[in-house]
Nucleic acid binder design. Structure first.
Lengths: 127, 127
DNA sequence: ACAACTTATATGACGCGTCATTGAATGACA
DNA sequence: TGTCATTCAATGACGCGTCATATAAGTTGT
């Protein structure tokens, strides 16, 4: 009854799910344990850290991640409260926000990134 | 500063995340809209439907999905309350549960699976 | 048969993401 | 300039998953 094509699709999907869950879980636990931040928090830090050149609006970041606008807003809020990021409203358009790493944020990101990359290497290695 | 190797890893990871979120989101919305069940509910139905031959303990299912034992338990609970699945405690070991699709569950799964496969095909196609 | 340990599932507190909505600022256009 | 629509971000209600436990059943060793 089950078409072999479909079966292959399902297996491909399960494989994606499995690596996603395993990897995300490992990242989550390690970052939480060593740096007291969640994975999504780190990912925002990581995105902001990449944009050293250009000022960095929330909207722009939203386009680089599958996160919801709402999720972004809350993550940024947590990062702000944790003192890792600062929000500056922009003069041109007072609806927009610019994000910037604080010194603490930059320092934490530098260390956490090492761990992050290492875990990705472990989990995504195609052996 | 950023090693190109690392950069590639990060991109690989983001790509996985993106396809995971997009696909899961699409599945979630479609299944919810057309069949009033969540993605995880469907996935359990799907697993149980596969095991027609052998009686199917929760424990076994747990090994085929990245879901937590706790998550499984709650999903199965919802499916039971929705009348799509039934739980029979096993005589040999009264800690274990056997799961079985109800007629309603089997019918819903048959229809939903078509939608599910179609969406996987759309989203996972390597164009 | 009794303790101590292990295994299978359920449950409660909690955190996070999502949806829908709100508030505020901007744009478009008559 | 006034009105209406649009855009950016924040918020509250809600659902689901996770962790740490609880409950119950089976296992082992003496």
């Amino acid at each position: 009854m089950a078409k072999p094509q479909d079966q292959q699709l399902v297996e491909q999907w399960r494989s994606i799910q499995t690596t996603y869950f395993h990897t995300a879980g490992a990242l989550e636990r390690a970052l939480e344990a060593k740096f007291s931040i969640g994975l999504t928090e780190f990912e925002i830090l990581d995105l902001v850290a990449e944009n050293t050149d250009e000022a960095c609006r929330m909207k722009q970041l939203g386009e680089r991640t599958p996160m919801t606008q709402s999720a972004m807003s809350k993550v940024v809020d947590r990062l702000d409260k944790a003192g890792l990021i600062s929000r500056h409203s922009c003069e041109d358009d007072r609806r927009s926000l610019f994000l910037e790493l604080t010194d603490a944020g930059r320092a934490l990101h530098r260390e956490a990134a090492v761990e992050h990359r290492a875990l990705l290497r472990e989990n995504l290695a195609k052996d």
